[in-house]
């Protein structure tokens, strides 16, 4: 049963990591990245590395999305300004 659990979490990490690369829009990518972080946290816990899993959860669940979305907002606002000037 341990092998099955490891296999399932590895597959989930592979699937969500592929999706994180394949999705092109940064806002949507941030969402996939959050889910990838959750999958990674499960994988780390399954291979008995809860410290690493906790780091992943702490950084990935709120901090990384906030940084990405703030950057997206800044870039979009700059785009709007430049669009208005021309």
């Amino acid at each position: 049963m341990t092998d099955a659990l490891t296999l399932v979490s590895l597959l989930l990490v592979a699937a969500s990591a592929t999706a994180a690369v394949a999705v092109r829009d940064p806002a949507r990518q941030a969402l996939v990245l959050a889910v990838l972080g959750l999958a990674l946290a499960v994988l780390f816990t399954v291979v008995q590395a809860p410290d690493v899993g906790l780091s992943q959860l702490a950084v990935g669940s709120a901090l990384t999305p906030l940084l990405i979305l703030l950057s997206v907002r800044k870039v979009r606002r700059r785009g709007q300004h430049e669009g208005g000037d021309r």
Binding site: P50, D51, G53, L54, S55, A58, V59, L63
Partner: peptide
């Protein structure tokens, strides 16, 4: 599990 880094981020 945990420590300075994880707790600090929280």
């Amino acid at each position: 599990p945990g420590g300075g880094f994880q707790g600090g981020v929280v």
